[in-house]
Write a protein that binds this DNA or RNA. Sequence first.
DNA 1: GCCGTTTTCGGCCCGACTGTTTTCAGTCG
Length: 576
Amino acid sequence: MKNAVISELFDQMADIMEILGEDVFRISTYRKVARIIGDLPTDVEMLLATGKLAEIPGIGKSSLAKIEEFVKTDTITAHQELLKKIPPTLLELLTIPGLGPKGTKAIYENLKVKSIAELKKALQDGLVEKLPGFGEKKAAALAKGIDFLQKSTGRIRLDQAMEAADIVTAFLKEQSGVEKVQPAGSLRRRAETIGDVDILVASKRGEQIIQAFTGAKFVQEVLASGPTKGSAIIQMETTPVHVDVRVVPSKSFGAAAQYFTGSKQHNVRLREIAVKAKMKLNEYGLFRGDKMVAGPVEEEIYKKLGLDYIDPLLREDRGEVEAAEAHKLPELIRLVDIKGDFHMHTSASDGKCSIEELAEAAKELGYKFICITDHSKSSAIANGLSAKQLAQQIKEIHKLNEKIKGITIFAGSEVDILADGSLDFDHKLLSELDFVIASIHSGMGSPRQKVTSRTLKAMDNPYVSCVAHPTGRLIGEREAMDIDIAAVIKQAAQTHTALEVNSNPYRLDLKDVHCKMAIEAGVKLAIGTDSHNIESLSLMSFGVATAGRGWATKDDVLNTLTPVKIKTWVKTKRPK
DNA sequence: GCCGTTTTCGGCCCGACTGTTTTCAGTCG
Ligand SMILES: Nc1nc2c(ncn2[C@H]2C[C@H](O)[C@@H](COP(=O)(O)OP(=O)(O)OP(=O)(O)O)O2)c(=O)[nH]1
Ligand SMILES: [Mg+2]
Ligand SMILES: [Mg+2]
Ligand SMILES: [Zn+2]
């Protein structure tokens, strides 16, 4: 799939044009195209062939021609031409926090600095601070910026962000004059990775609160500190986390929540609608002239713009604004709709606790079912079960179902999809299970055709009810397999197989846009926590959020069915 | 570069913080 490369090239063209000082609106068009292509869940080549690409707003003739050229030749002439105008390594400088295109241009033209390494040297030699527009402080900030960049671990996982947000939120709630505290930004939208943690505060005492925040003991470094907002790095156990705090008076809290939750592109869309309606939208409110039309309550902002309320999970400018205008937003799946969990491991394979312990914990969560899915024998590292052990476990589950009331324990397996697409267990044994999930744990680096056909073949098996973590990614650690997700989804629809939304924050697999594709194809989602202990059962909320980001309703998710209905659903695929 | 029942030309979201600036540009949210 060429989407990612095309997206990068458009961003790079925008970067170069910015350094060259070209028209800012033209540049933002390139950035928009980069974002659109980067967000596409489907192969750009397919969309191009069907003419769908040209229909996407924001992609005009010129961009379309560039994309077409890349699809055919693997290059974009305009990109090549731009690259001739600056040394490619100069683009590194744009990644330094605090240094933008203007500064980069000045440093390049005056000092002939072409890379971060050379900039470091120039800073040490005291050359940068002598440049017009620069000074001692700016030079020092740049040195710090480089340091930070080289130490930075990049975007963090949702669970890490949540932990940091909890600490800061608790601290802010203690401060006098604080009326409300609300995590915002990509964390509130439950994006799959988080660049920085954004927290909104309602208070009249902005300056004092920001000072308290930047002076807090968990703060390692202060990046900015003013009367309404502050930025700092806090050191968590596993990683440093960048936190932005914004304070507004409570009469603006709704508007500020809208602003600070984003996404940026979603905000721009709303502000455009406001302008068209002769109004102005900012973080202080929605205004017609001097009159505040909405502000204290977030829902009112949407209402007064003529839109249905848009759940934060959907605010990515992926069609939600149009849907809100047309009153066609989905009623999203919620955690309270979830009746059970499809994926968990016991101490029989690599889990930490017994079936009974998991069942009791699930009952506490109000669940009506759980599905025990230990690994199969090929996953030797995970202590996978042999056929004999699995048969034994099935018996044990039947006994436990007699003993434990109020919850149904499904006998299941996370059965390995072998190299040839066959499974670790025969039909006879699989037929004795209530719900089988199949997944790939080996040969994940194989070519696209190979991993795809393995997965497709597994779905042909009438006893496979679900494919678990279909792309196999581990966020921050391992790329997704090169798998044809469109083909997997099509096959899932045809074979009556569900696709998992793995809730582990390392996985979130399927991811949001793939969930959306699956739902549009009529495929059901099965959310599983992949728990190896009791605590992880609560990861369900991440899976539900990911499905919600994929526009999932109650009807799209198997976890909302009663155990009886799940059994019926499974039988549909099996031989009569 | 893109787009349009107010426009096919002329707009394009809007504001906070920093540093070097004497009135604001650059960068970022
Ligand atoms: N109107 C407007 N709002 C913006 C702009 N940039 C950022 N915001 C708002 C929306 C963002 O969600 C929010 C927080 O900014 P961040 O840079 O932290 O982005 P966000 O949290 O969405 O993603 P992240 O995971 O941090 O990269 O501020 C902008 O250019 N215009
Ligand atoms: Mg953020
Ligand atoms: Mg932020
Ligand atoms: Zn598992």
